[in-house]
Each structure stands twice: as structure tokens, then as C-alpha cells.
Amino acid sequence: MSQELTYEAAYSELQLIAEEIENEAVSVDLLAEKVKRASMLIEFCQQKLRATEAEVNNIIKQMEVNKGEK
């Protein structure tokens, strides 16, 4: 990939792949490739969500510490 993948782009691509598979628009020759790509995108999205959750939790904790110091 030439540019960095974003959560939104990965999620959109996942939706497209799911739609193609559901509509049987994917040939048998490409099915394994599409499923492999979907698996990679799911893992990417899960990691992004976990990292974002951790960051938000850290911000909230810091806000609580700062509030307690006042």
C-alpha cells in the first residue's frame, strides 16, 4: 500500500468485500484472496480500536488526575 491505511478505509473495504461475497459477485478463483484480505482488514480494525480505546482511557485518567490536583 502506498498510503497509510485508515480505519474508515479499511472498514469501507470490508463492507465492499462482504457485499461482493453475499451477492456472489466474487469468482471462486478470487474468493480465497478476498477472504484473506478481509481477515487482514479485520485484524487492522481491531488493533486500531484497541489502541484508540487505550488512548482515550489514558486521557480520561489524566483528566481525573488533573482534576484531583485542583
Results as ranks from 00 to 15, higher is better:
65 V>P: 01
54 A>I: 01
16 L>P: 00
49 L>A: 12
24 E>A: 06
11 Y>M: 03
43 E>V: 04
4 E>M: 07
33 E>C: 02
3 Q>H: 11
31 L>E: 04
25 A>I: 00
50 R>E: 12
4 E>F: 08
16 L>G: 06
3 Q>Y: 10
27 S>V: 03
67 K>L: 05
42 I>V: 12
8 E>A: 03
25 A>N: 13
43 E>I: 05
55 E>A: 13
13 E>C: 04
32 A>V: 05
12 S>E: 14
67 K>Y: 10
31 L>T: 03
15 Q>S: 08
66 N>D: 15
69 E>H: 11
12 S>V: 01
2 S>F: 06
42 I>T: 12
33 E>M: 07
61 K>V: 09
37 R>D: 00
2 S>L: 10
50 R>H: 05
22 E>G: 06
54 A>F: 03
18 A>Q: 14
22 E>Q: 14
43 E>P: 00
34 K>W: 00
68 G>H: 10
52 T>D: 15
57 N>S: 09
1 M>A: 13
45 C>Q: 02
57 N>R: 01
43 E>W: 02
5 L>V: 07
18 A>N: 15
21 I>G: 03
54 A>W: 02
40 M>F: 08
36 K>Y: 09
9 A>P: 01
19 E>G: 01
36 K>E: 02
45 C>M: 11
43 E>T: 11
20 E>Q: 14
67 K>M: 05
18 A>Y: 11
44 F>A: 08
63 M>N: 11
64 E>S: 07
50 R>K: 06
59 I>S: 07
67 K>G: 01
30 L>W: 07
70 K>T: 06
53 E>I: 07
43 E>Y: 04
52 T>A: 15
62 Q>H: 11
31 L>F: 08
9 A>K: 06
46 Q>C: 07
13 E>S: 08
7 Y>A: 08
67 K>V: 00
2 S>Q: 11
49 L>N: 08
9 A>L: 13
1 M>T: 12
28 V>T: 06
10 A>V: 02
58 N>T: 10
45 C>I: 08
32 A>D: 02
23 N>A: 12
25 A>Y: 08
69 E>I: 11
12 S>N: 13
24 E>Q: 09
10 A>C: 08
39 S>N: 13
29 D>A: 13
37 R>M: 04
57 N>E: 14
42 I>M: 06
69 E>N: 14
15 Q>Y: 06
20 E>I: 01
6 T>F: 04
50 R>Q: 09
40 M>S: 11
63 M>I: 09
51 A>I: 00
45 C>V: 09
43 E>G: 05
52 T>E: 15
16 L>E: 11
35 V>K: 15
68 G>E: 15
12 S>C: 04
10 A>Y: 05
23 N>Q: 13
59 I>Q: 10
4 E>C: 02
23 N>R: 13
3 Q>E: 15
27 S>F: 07
68 G>F: 08
44 F>T: 05
13 E>Y: 04
33 E>S: 10
31 L>N: 03
64 E>Y: 09
41 L>S: 03
46 Q>T: 06
11 Y>R: 03
1 M>W: 08
65 V>F: 15
20 E>P: 02
